[in-house]
């Protein structure tokens, strides 16, 4: 753990140094992601501290999706939630707000209730995997905060989601 934190810090410093050469890496076209700065693509997943909310968001995955007008958890959603449960049990100083969202194909009030149902389905699943219910709170946004703003099924599918928002306990 300590090693990982040090490594992360060093790489962060390297990143900052690279930024001072912004022209070279950003603008001359030759540099880019794979240029002399090296291995940018590998940095994120390889060096994130697993105990951070960033790791939770990017590697565990904070979002799952739902079928039209449904709050049931698909097998792939369950496997993401298994990871969320494991992370929450390993990092007991964090609490979670679970947001439920709906796509725009529904009335405002119904979508608020549907978002609440989705958030509760996630919460109940996490409780079933051992996460204390007292560490979680559910929140519905209905159709008020879409992730994607187009009006096609491709976007709707992204908007029918729950997002698990992690924060340090005592800080809300």
């Amino acid at each position: 753990m300590t090693y990982l934190k040090k490594a992360a810090l060093m790489l962060a410093l390297l990143g900052a140094a690279a930024c001072t050469n912004g022209d070279r890496f950003g603008n001359n076209g030759e540099g880019g992601a794979g240029g002399p700065g090296g291995a940018n693509g590998g940095i994120e997943s390889g060096t994130l501290d697993p105990a951070t909310p960033q790791y939770f968001n990017q590697t565990v995955g904070n979002t799952i999706n739902f079928a039209v007008d449904q709050s049931t958890l698909s097998p792939s959603a369950q496997s993401v939630l298994d990871g969320q449960a494991a992370w929450l049990m390993a990092n007991t100083t964090y609490i979670a707000v679970i947001e439920g969202h709906a796509d725009e194909q529904g009335t405002r009030e119904y979508n608020l209730a549907l978002g609440a149902r989705r958030a509760a389905a996630v919460r109940d699943y996490l409780v079933s995997k051992g996460v204390a219910g007292s560490r979680m709170r559910t929140l519905t946004y209905g159709k008020e905060r879409p992730l994607a703003s187009c009006s096609t099924e491709e976007c709707y599918a992204q908007n029918r989601r729950s997002v698990t928002i992690i924060s340090a306990a005592g800080v809300s």
Partner: peptide, 22 residues
């Protein structure tokens, strides 16, 4: 959410969600 007044103006009817049930 979804509040609305009764005609008497003193009563409110609305939806309340507990544990995901509205």
């Amino acid at each position: 959410f979804a509040p609305r007044f009764a005609p008497d103006g003193r009563t409110v009817v609305f939806s309340l969600t507990t544990g995901g049930n509205t």
